[in-house]
Computed example of a mutant assay.
Amino acid sequence: MTPPLVAILNGPNLNLLGTRQPHIYGSTTLDDVETLCGEAADEFGLALDFRQTNSEGELVTWVQECRGRAQGIIINPAGYTTTSIALLDALLAVELPVIEVHITNIHRREEFRQHSYVSKAATGVIAGLGVEGYALAIRAMAGLLAQDDE
């Protein structure tokens, strides 16, 4: 039996993790995050499709490609959190469980970062727990998918 596929999609500037503002985002790289996610996915019997893009259109396309292919989406929309209605519409259209992840607590940051369009499509949101938030999101997604199987 093929393990359920979960897409982990990362938005703009996350390719700079580890070097970009380490006092805010830490020193962990995106490659480290992918390794962390792979270990968590193995623990819960999930397959992963881990991607990052700086392009809004590409991120929207990736979300759309999840329909009929993935069983859930974990997304760190980064800068598109507060700006992308197109991303919100794509997430709503695929009709999959969505967990929104932010490395920092967006609610403790600048006012413009505190609103999320993506949250309107998200089953749940994890913010402010650093890169461990990704592992928590995988655990939560595994639980959601197990509920769907019942």
Rank of each mutant, 00 (worst) to 15 (best):
P3H: 07
L5G: 09
A7D: 10
I8F: 09
I8W: 06
L9W: 13
G11M: 14
P12T: 14
N13Y: 10
L16Y: 01
L16K: 00
L17W: 02
L17E: 04
R20C: 02
Y25L: 03
G26S: 02
T28M: 05
T28A: 12
T29K: 00
D32G: 02
V33Q: 09
L36T: 03
C37H: 05
G38F: 10
A40F: 04
A40G: 02
F44Q: 08
L46I: 06
A47R: 11
L48H: 11
F50M: 07
L59N: 11
W62S: 13
V63G: 10
V63Y: 09
C66N: 04
G68R: 00
R69N: 06
R69S: 05
A70E: 04
A70C: 15
A70H: 05
N76L: 09
G79W: 13
Y80R: 04
T83S: 15
T83E: 11
T83H: 13
S84V: 15
I85S: 10
L87M: 12
L88V: 07
L88F: 10
D89C: 08
L91R: 03
A93Y: 03
V94F: 13
V98H: 08
V101W: 02
H102N: 11
H102A: 07
H102P: 02
H102Q: 06
T104F: 05
N105V: 12
N105F: 10
R108E: 13
E110G: 14
F112I: 14
R113Y: 14
Q114N: 06
H115K: 13
H115A: 15
S116E: 12
S119V: 02
K120S: 14
K120A: 15
I126L: 11
G128Q: 05
L129G: 02
G130M: 00
G130P: 00
G133W: 10
L136D: 00
I138C: 05
I138Q: 02
R139E: 14
A140P: 00
A142Y: 04
G143H: 02
G143N: 05
L144R: 02
L145Y: 06
A146I: 03
D148I: 15
D149Q: 12
